[in-house]
Amino acid sequence: MDEKTRREIEGKILPKYRTRRSACMASMQLVQRQKGYLTKEDMEEIARLLDMEPVEVEAVGKFYTMYNVERPVGRYHIQVCENLSCSLMGGEHILKHIERLLGIKTGQTTGDKRFTLSVVQCLGSCGTAPVIQVNDDYYENLTDKKVEEILERLK
C-alpha cells in the first residue's frame, strides 16, 4: 500500500464513518482497484490502519465475492451472469462461447494473464439479459457476435 492510498483512506474514507472499521470495505476496494486483488500484506496493513485483526479483514474479504483475496486475476475479469433471467435468454450459451473463444474454462485465466473468466449471480440487469461484466463495465443484450467484438477489442 503506498502513501497515497493511505492518505486517501485517512482523508476520504474514514471521515465518512463513525468507526475506523467501517472503512474496511472501501479500503479493500481501493487497494484491489490498483492491482486487481488483495495480498496478505495488504490485509495486514489495512488491519493495522483500521485497528482490526488481520483475520477480520480476511473474513470480510472472503465473505463478499467481489474481493479477490490472494487470487490474482487477469487484466480483464469477465464475469458472466448465470442467474435465471440471463439463463433464460441464453447466458449459458454465451459462457460456452467465451470459453471457446479464450480457450479456458470458467475460473481460469488465460496464459497471457489477459483474461480471467468467472460466473456470477444476478448482476441486476435482467431486462437486458444476457449480461456480462468486464471489470467495471456491463455489456448487455449479448449475442455471439457482440461477444466476439468485445473480446476482439480487448485482446
Binding site: 467501517s22 465473505f63 444476478c122
Partner: peptide, 19 residues
C-alpha cells in the same frame, strides 16, 4: 461488494460497520 444477503436490512448495517 457481492453479497445478496446485504439487502436484508440488518446485514446491510453490519456491512456498513465493516463486518
Amino acid at each position: 461488494f457481492g453479497a445478496y444477503i446485504c439487502g436484508e436490512e440488518t446485514a446491510l448495517l453490519e456491512s456498513i460497520e465493516g463486518y
